[in-house]
Design a protein around this nucleic acid. Structure first.
Lengths: 266, 266
DNA sequence: GTTTCTTTATGGTCCTACAATTGACTTGTC
DNA sequence: GACAAGTCAATTGTAGGACCATAAAGAAAC
């Protein structure tokens, strides 16, 4: 073991010119990636059972610890579920909307995205959501929306925090009525984040609450009528109005960040 | 060890009435959640070092394996980075846009979101993206866009796959010029997914390519002029046109799903 | 039939040991 | 003094083994 290759060997340098740093991946990452590809490919259907941990150990040659770390990664990505006990094991699953929302939240909070930026995203999403909802809402969607509107009416004068919470439900219900999974996931995430923000700076004056109820009624009317253009315009105006109020508040205070990590690059 | 509590003991039943199934969380999940809260809270700044694995072992009382599984979860969420070696360890980081995009892709592929649904999302996002880009684009943004436009011009007649790839760059560049991190992340993800889809069904006829170049020129013109309303309208028209062509294609074939897992609930 | 117990394959947890990595430190050399 | 090479030590990466906890199927008892 004396003839080691020296990194400064000129011949080797010539051979390796143009090669950057060689990254040696972790075995758990490699396994996780490979399993992910098989899951996304045609290898496994939803609910199908992956090999047991011990089977993976023997087929891959890795230790059980590494195998388990790979499975934790897949679990964090929402690709698998794990159940203990006999006839348990690891099964393929779909990332849920909640899962995606959670990652969106992490991104937003990690970057201290401004409230203004959130409003802009909402301004992009919600009119489209409402337009689609007007086209596709089912009877169940409408019943749900009416029920929520009723609860909002009640809470507006009695229960401020309930009012805000039901407001989120309202937005979520419209998003669900759009029957577009991705759009719904985006819109729901943003609604949730705005809700968190609006709890910090109490926005909901009596006047604002009154305006919200009126706007909701007109929006629901358009959705119920199946008039997608009208629904789009009314939501657009509603969100614009919200944005204006927000701008006014932001003008007094300095720009407001969502709660989360304080950002100071190392 | 003979006096075990029987699950059917009537006295115990009375005491435990109303209790559902007790869920025992995994230790790694608990630790991951706790660390996540501390990271998101004010406990750690970006780049700060978490305790070493062995320190976590002694402070938490868990095994090193459980600690490592918790760290893998946080790593999959993009909240920490890990480096081996002395002075290495686990440090706090931000989830990147790529990270979020990857999770969005998983969600879309896992649910076999239709191409039509993707177009709808794009129709919601891109006009807003363009409007903001017109207001906020820097000189660097404009230079970048011009460079890409030039490469698209060249590739349009010579290199079909290059044409499609540069098209994605074009959309990403506009998204970057919007200077809204969340909107950018959403738009970029959707662009990437549409790109994957458009590779499957070759969309880019010579006629379409010509139309795209023309539309891009007019959009860039509006962005450069800082006319956000014009930019919004032109992008809206562009995406609408794209959607129309797509509708036509979808009318011939049955609805097309993105590549991914074939969905059959267990 | 219903309940209760037993069985057993599976994930969950812990422990120990060693290998690989890597930045700081030390030494050598010119 | 400056630069190169080698040494060191703390940390993550990996392996292997042992045992516990869980839970569903099946057997046994009533």
């Amino acid at each position: 073991m004396t003839t080691q290759i020296s990194p400064t060997n000129s011949h080797a340098e010539t051979l390796l010119e143009g090669l950057g740093r060689i990254k040696v991946p972790k075995s758990s990452d490699v396994l996780a990636e490979r399993l992910k590809q098989e899951i996304l490919g045609d290898g496994y259907n939803l609910g199908a059972a992956l090999p047991t941990e011990r089977e993976l150990v023997s087929t891959t040659g890795l230790s059980r610890g590494s195998v388990r770390e790979a499975l934790r990664i897949l679990e964090a990505q929402g690709l698998v579920n794990t159940r203990a006990g006999r006839y348990g094991g690891t099964t393929v699953s779909q990332p849920t909307a909640d899962h995606l929302a959670s990652h969106i939240n992490l991104y937003v909070k990690g970057r201290s995205v401004t409230l203004r930026a959130l409003v802009e995203v909402r301004l992009a999403l919600e009119p489209m959501v409402a337009a689609l909802a007007a086209e596709r809402r089912t009877d169940a969607d409408l019943a749900n929306l009416h029920a929520i509107a009723e609860r909002i009416e009640w809470a507006a004068d009695n229960d401020l925090s309930g009012f805000l919470a039901e407001n989120v439900n309202w937005h979520d219900a419209i998003a669900a009525a759009s029957h577009n999974d991705l759009l719904q996931a985006f819109a729901t995430s943003v609604s949730g984040l705005m809700f968190e923000a609006s709890q910090i700076k109490e926005f909901a004056s009596a006047e604002v609450r009154q305006r919200v109820r009126h706007a909701h009624a007109r929006i629901l009317e358009a959705i119920e009528a199946g008039d997608s253009d009208l629904a789009r315009r009314r939501v657009e105006r509603d969100v614009q109005a919200y944005a204006s109020i927000l701008e006014a508040v932001l003008a007094t205070a300095t720009d407001v960040e969502l709660p989360g990590e304080s950002q100071e690059p190392a």
